[in-house]
Design a protein around this nucleic acid. Structure first.
Length: 156
DNA sequence: GCCAACGTTGGC
DNA sequence: GCCAACGTTGGC
């Protein structure tokens, strides 16, 4: 049985559109530099389903779904001095940071906005909605998934 | 654009 | 090991 997750992305930097247009179909999800988020990346299994959330925009929203195309492996950018994600403290023999590959799955019929998530019963426990939460990767329960998937299929 | 919340850094 | 300072995230 697949597990469920949610990833955040700023669409100005990388959007669901960008994921859909990837040549070869999947994208490397590099650059996560938070231990808790990294641990979630490491727990992802191939074919797990991932809600794709657009942050730092006027109407933050879940816009669609991706799937895990490749399970976690070392993020090469941690060893690239020219990269924004370079981490001089990471040991190549025991890399500190991991990433996965994600593949576009589907776009919701309409975005499910943060405002709507907040007023929907059953989603109160989502880390995404907790005050001050900044994790870019979080787990989603099957119950939360069912509610959100349903909202995403429903026409406005 | 503002600013609260957060994780990290570094002085002591 | 503490904690203030700092830089970043991200909703509003």
């Amino acid at each position: 049985m697949p597990s469920y997750w949610l990833v955040k992305s700023e669409p100005d930097v990388y959007s669901l559109d960008d994921l859909e247009k990837e040549r070869g179909g999947s994208a490397t999800w590099e650059g996560v530099r938070n231990y808790e988020a990294r641990n979630f990346l490491r727990a992802m299994k191939r074919r797990d389903k991932v809600l794709f959330y657009h942050s730092r925009v006027k109407e933050p929203a879940i816009v669609g779904v991706a799937t895990v195309a490749r399970e976690s492996y070392p993020d090469p950018t941690q060893f690239e001095p020219a990269s924004d994600y370079f981490d001089p403290g990471s040991d190549p023999e025991d890399p500190r940071w991991s990433m996965v590959d994600l593949r576009f799955s589907l776009r919701f019929v309409r975005p499910v906005t943060r405002a709507e998530l907040k007023r929907t019963a059953g989603l109160e426990e989502m880390p995404l909605l907790a005050r001050g939460n900044r994790l870019s990767v979080t787990p989603v329960t099957p119950g939360q998934w069912a509610i959100i998937a349903r909202l995403g299929k429903r026409r406005a």
